[in-house]
Design a protein around this nucleic acid. Structure first.
Lengths: 202, 202, 202, 202
DNA sequence: CATGAATGAGGATTCATTCAT
DNA sequence: CATGAATGAATCCTCATTCAT
């Protein structure tokens, strides 16, 4: 999953990397950002190429279709998610970890105001497409829910699965409302309520 | 707001309605449905015309642009929302009303599985567009939040506003997850949790 | 030629005229004006119908095609031209008549600034069309040139025909430049030069 | 001004020109010709593409809108005008230069018969459009008037400006009448009269 | 006669994808 | 490997003209 955002296809030699450092990664990163900002359907390949400072015709050397670029963006999200989880796991208690997660969400409230949750909006749009990208996106979403479930479980909650879904649902919903009403306060207030809720679970 | 889904343009006489019963309304209804199913960007005017069984060229007699059709779909949502609220208001206590609202959401879980919340996905997509449709959609979303706030207030809650946002956010998020994971159980389970939460508020 | 702007088709009874006084004439007048302002190709039947305050569907009772409306506008020009010539003919000398003609042109300079010569722009556009309307327009243009030729002839000029063409050409050209540069002064200055030229011819 | 008819977009290298010799220029030339023949409004992009032997979809690689194609046609006129003026300036006296200009007009009388003055008809049509193309066209028209004014001034005429406008107006008008009456003789006769007039100015 | 409504043939424009060098 | 250029299928929208009542 992280492989596909690492380098060009084929045997990765130092020479290749030296010649074109991270052109593929740049495209994946640009795709991730632009797809969030403009939405999947409104984003053209030219948009992504421009954002990555890669000539349009060259994009197809790295990604054969637009779908593959979307897939790369999903993978980029997965990679970032992995890093985030690794960082959270360094904290002591599950409560701390969950509240740190929530804190991260609230910290990104300005992005939510403008474009909503980077991954939620993606899932929402991908559902309308015939390709199987929505399944891949679901898998990535599942990673975080499973992680949260583990936290709730280690807090001794028998309904850990339901709590994890509730946490993620509330986050997705508050991101959507924050975006709809262009109001960062929604993130702040609901984030605080979520943290209190975590504390109340014992 | 209901006007635009009622009849053809110009003065609406009985004769007119008798001659062409609800072609405009049919288009608005079709727009509402198809936009939900396929998403705003992927829906073509031909799609809507076909769904309403109206020749493509004729659509423009009723709606001058695609945007106006989207607006009509928003208005249709607003109208349905108005009816729903009127029905809910016939119930005795705010708790009953809120739980009836939640029950309605859960009852529509199969739709959520396939396409997500009809209005949330619309808001999410409209945000990416330059036109002002997202503002109109926000107003409609506001209506239900304000209604919920009134219920919480009449339950004596000082934090009624925050509770209303939380309720709506959770609904939006659980719809999104239901859609993403194609799992109606999410609606059932989270709906039950929401109802319990209402009861717990006293 | 004037007949076609007078009344509805079929036997013209007083009753008919009384019922719908000048609806056809109103359409012809509106066509004449709007075609000048917007140009033939950019003018829609709806534009003309609106300007004449006649329902769109009703236009076809009076004019079966857009071409017929253009023809009616040409006829309206011819009618006005006839009246103008009749008025000019009441003046004493050919010099007076020609200079009155020029004075009339200069008096309409604000219209020329905005839209050019009503008839010249029409001739110019009609030439690009496959229909025979350009021939009709040419006939109308010929009327005024012939009239001018008669004036020059009665001034004793053997080259009356050439002078008439020169007069009309200069008028058409100064109208075009006035319109292109949006400068009414061009009409005033060149009008004065034309008048001086008339005087210089003896 | 000549730039836009020179080559494809982006930095113009010899290699580029070698690879695709003048496709953009071909489109501009085709636009210039077809717009004159059919008029701006009646010319479709497909017409121009066909005349340039370029696939329709490819036109947009060179010109983002139809307006840009019109602009390119204007620029092509400006370029030709520049060449013509350069050639005229090689003649000895202003009288010779002006009469050579008139001679050129008369030499193109067959084109005038069929379609009118290439630039005058353009100015006439562009005036009806909301875009700013009419202003650009006016600038090009101004170039020739200013040049003529310089000739009249170097002939010692204090009213050089008025004379220049008169010259251009007469040309525009005689082109229009030539086109309207489909009579090349008008160009010949009025051209001779213009030449005589130049001589009479001393 | 009157008129709101219907119809379908274009026309401009966009864009994912492919190709030639 | 790189890249400007090419391609054609869609899509939104307009409008003259016709129709039903």
């Amino acid at each position: 999953m992280t492989d596909s955002v690492a380098g060009p296809p084929g045997p990765i030699s130092d020479a290749t990397v030296a010649r074109r450092p991270g052109k593929r990664a740049r495209l994946a990163a640009a795709a991730s950002r632009v797809l969030h900002e403009r939405g999947v359907e409104r984003t053209t390949l030219a948009d992504i190429a421009r954002a990555a400072d890669v000539p349009v015709g060259n994009v197809y050397y790295y990604f054969k279709t637009k779908d593959e670029l979307v897939q790369a963006a999903i993978d980029a999200h997965a990679a970032r998610l992995g890093e985030m989880i690794a960082a959270l796991d360094r904290l002591r208690t599950p409560q701390e970890r969950l509240k740190a997660l929530i804190g991260g969400w609230v910290g990104q409230r300005d992005l939510a105001v403008r474009y909503g949750c980077p991954f939620g909006t993606l899932c929402s749009e991908l559902d309308k497409r015939a390709d199987g990208l929505d399944r891949t996106a679901a898998e990535v979403m599942r990673i975080l829910i499973d992680w949260a479930e583990r936290q709730f479980r280690s807090m001794g909650r028998a309904d850990a699965g339901e709590l994890a879904v509730q946490l993620m649902a509330t986050y997705q919903g508050m991101s959507l409302l924050t975006n709809t009403f262009r109001d960062p306060e929604i993130m702040t207030v609901q984030g605080r309520r979520l943290a209190d809720w975590i504390d109340s679970l014992g």
